[in-house]
Design a protein around this nucleic acid. Structure first.
Lengths: 133, 133
DNA sequence: CTGTATCCGATCGGATACTG
DNA sequence: CAGTATCCGATCGGATACAG
């Protein structure tokens, strides 16, 4: 097999995200889903409470944040710590693996933010050529 | 603003993915969308034709691959080169920015693949505690 | 081979209301 | 404060058929 995909099999790992049935795909989707990446990014510098997170991740609804946090918690990327106080206080923080993931995610985001001028220029060219389609 | 988000504003960039209206969010979603990341990853080692890509990105449909490629091309991450031959031959390859993005993406994927044993264990614990729920 | 067009069910995700 | 429950429109995305 003349591999050009220096991925899982070349590194002798049991998981290959390029394979349809691999469980790593599900986690990748949680991490890179609409709110997953921003949530992990927001938690990368320390724990935050539910509504702090909501404000930080601009635009997320309660429902989606709750859903996102559950998925990340289940995957072992986020830790949920509920204080038995009144009013309730719940802190969310990254696990070690969550931190690693968040670091990579933030590196990606930085590249994207840094390249947005190129992206915007490319879009204009594309829309011109294809005449707004 | 006591920033704990060492992101765009701290680096004096005009784009901040955490802001709802920032155009970088759209690009992040193209890149991290269901097929965007896998497509960029598949192209990271060289150009591929349409159906080569389809086989590489296991599970993607024609429609979704086409849509994904258009979005990535418009954002200036992928270059489309159509040969005027018969039968038609179209090569897709990464732009320089596309390569940078793909590198970050692959780094993320590697962390995820490498951490899947932890992830799977965390899931079992979660599902036990919360009783399948 | 490289796509586009259409149909249509599944899922996403926002708004709102409500609970502890 | 920290969520859950429900409604419901928008979008996603697969299957299929068709086109250059």
């Amino acid at each position: 097999m003349t591999s050009t995909q220096e991925s899982a099999e070349d590194r002798h790992l049991p998981y290959d995200v390029f394979a349809k049935a691999c469980p790593s795909r599900g986690t990748l989707e949680h991490v890179t889903g609409r709110w997953g990446g921003l949530t992990l990014g927001a938690l990368s510098e320390g724990s935050l409470r539910f509504n702090e997170l909501r404000r930080r991740v601009d635009g997320v609804s309660e429902k989606m944040l709750s859903q996102t946090l559950h998925a990340l918690e289940r995957d072992g990327l986020v830790l949920r710590e509920a204080q038995p106080t009144n009013p309730p206080r719940v802190d969310y923080e990254l696990t070690p693996l969550g931190h690693e993931v968040a670091q990579r995610l933030l590196a990606l985001i930085r590249v994207l933010e840094g390249g947005m001028d190129d992206v915007l220029a490319a879009r204009e060219r594309y829309d011109e050529t294809r005449g707004a389609r």
